[in-house]
Nucleic acid binder design. Structure first.
Lengths: 156, 156
DNA sequence: TACCGGTTGTTCAAATTCGAACCTCCTTGT
DNA sequence: ACAAGGAGGTTCGAATTTGAACAACCGGTA
């Protein structure tokens, strides 16, 4: 079970580290940063709330809250979706793009020094593949791949 | 950066999964469960708050809160430390030990099915070693098992 | 058209987390 | 003995998260 303990410690320390770095550097929480990234990599800098929530690892209400915070700071704007009256688009403002551009290098550096640089190439490979599988395995009833979400493992 | 994304997704999904399983199964949060485990593995079922906070990955105030919750449910008792009047011992009650005993199998199963069983032996090995190093690297000025073969030199 | 199940995003209360301020007590130096 | 400095825990306010409940809206169907 050493893997589990290691996982727990690495998880909380890295997460804490990154969160701090980001907050001190750019006044953004990690959640907010991730939202900005998703918006920035989208075609027009605009993404529907649902798609955002899908790509991130937070609840719908959590997303509403964070987008609200970003909107207060003028980094994001809400616009109603032309095709779907109940839909809401989150749109990256110019200021938001600038903020992200300013924050990105520090964040990348933090991740690199905390996680990437500590591993050698092979470990990085294995960790990426292994954790990728672990994450995918727990993805909500997604019709993509993999067996039943709940594996009762009857045989035991 | 695939490793980072994988890490993020695995982290949040596994954490969520375990948290849920534990809450549904035994009405405990993961933080509370970990506290009980630390207490149960201690000599007399009693540990000082500081030592608890040291072994867990939470802040002092967070620990105070969670121990308070556990105390409300009668799973833990507070006792003053005989050697140090400002110290507080968290003591596992019989009921607490029973609760833990009842919760443990489900938790272990959840961890196993979510993380362990998804990896083969070699991956498990590498992940444990790699993440162990990652976690240790971010440990606050810890003078224990010298994980500082490389000069930290975070400057620059 | 009216209905009905399913989707979208928000609002709500409750729980949890964090850091800073704070008080009590120990330890050391004089 | 006494003051200074530090350690141990708690308290406080603010921020964040979550799931459930909710209102509006889409799509298809009779």
């Amino acid at each position: 079970m050493a893997a589990w303990l290691g996982f727990l410690e690495a998880t909380s320390r890295v997460s804490r580290h990154v969160e701090h770095q980001l907050k001190d550097d750019a006044g953004l929480s990690h959640a907010q940063y991730e939202i900005l990234v998703k918006l920035a990599t989208a075609p027009e800098g605009e993404v529907r709330m649902t798609d955002l929530a899908h790509g991130l690892f937070t609840s719908k209400s959590g997303l509403t809250y964070q987008v609200g915070q970003l909107e207060k700071r003028g980094l994001v704007e809400r616009r109603s979706c032309p095709f779907d009256d109940r839909g809401v688009l989150a749109v990256l403002t110019t200021e938001g793009r600038d903020t992200l551009r300013a924050a990105a290098p520090g964040h990348v550096e933090a991740v690199r020094s905390a996680l990437i640089d500590v591993l050698d190439r092979e470990e990085l490979d294995v960790v990426a593949r292994a954790l990728g599988r672990v994450g995918a395995r727990l993805r909500p009833a997604d019709h993509s791949a993999g067996p039943a979400p709940h594996a009762p493992a009857p045989g035991s």
